[in-house]
Nucleic acid binder design. Structure first.
Lengths: 85, 85, 85, 85
DNA sequence: ACCGAAGTTGTATCAC
DNA sequence: GTGATACAACTTCGGT
């Protein structure tokens, strides 16, 4: 086993290769979007905003959203429970 | 302070709000793609492939790519160094 | 609350304090080694080597090692799969 | 340039190789200590403590220490200034 | 002293 | 729920 680079070349059997390539394409898209996000932070920084503060804001808003969703889920459970009781 | 939703309402000064919303939209896209990736793994699993093995393959191929990039970078550094000598 | 040192005095209940102190001792050792590494880079720089290039080399060699490990792992996965077939 | 693995093999000129190996040895030690730290967290978790909380405690104590050091430095500067005045 | 990049650490997500 | 993986944040470092 002195030629480990062969391994990655051997995955084209069946549909495996196609799956792998679909995943890799999607991962590249994901990476591109992550880069876009970085660019927006950089642009914002260029106009005088603090990236760290912005990240905090985004994170808080994300938590708010998450919290709201969870509260709605709890409410649904309650309503369900009442309907079943 | 039981109404954290207020926080998000207070960021619309200047262009900040616009930056935040662009970021949030991008993050949502990113999340959507991550979900797509998960779906592909699930589909592959459905046709008999092992997700763990697939992740390993993707990871190795990613490292191959990364390694190639790093080697190109160090080659540049070497050439640079020679130019300065 | 201008005396945050009080906080650290209040954690000695149970074995917690002992765990914390073990961690802190280890972290200090780690920091010492990080300093040693810096010194080696400085010394190498003093004899004419470029730190950036050295870091790249170290990084590539680290990836080589990592890649080998991953390849061994995937080989194990393959052998496992064959055993199950 | 189809044999990039040669690059890492070419670093043994001069003392470079020795420097690289010293760094790698130190980095391995560092990694070993990091693993020890993880183990302590795991052990603490096993006896019922929450790792996240512990990390917070360690972090706060680290900041306290840092703060104390800075305050001592400021004090030194003051004393120096007074001596010189 | 700052800036960008790299590395490290901490957190969250996910599959089992 | 636990361990592994991946993502995000912070710190550090070298260069300018």
């Amino acid at each position: 086993m002195n030629k480990p680079e062969r391994i990655s070349a051997d995955v084209d059997s069946g549909h495996l290769r196609a799956f792998i390539e679909r995943i890799e394409r999607l991962e590249e898209e994901k990476r591109a979007i992550a880069d876009d996000i970085k660019e927006v932070y950089a642009e914002a920084k260029g106009t005088g905003y603090d990236a760290k503060v912005m990240r905090k804001i985004v994170s808080i808003r994300r938590m708010d959203r998450q919290k709201r969703i969870e509260e709605e889920e709890i409410l649904s459970l309650y309503l369900e429970a009442l309907g079943e009781a």
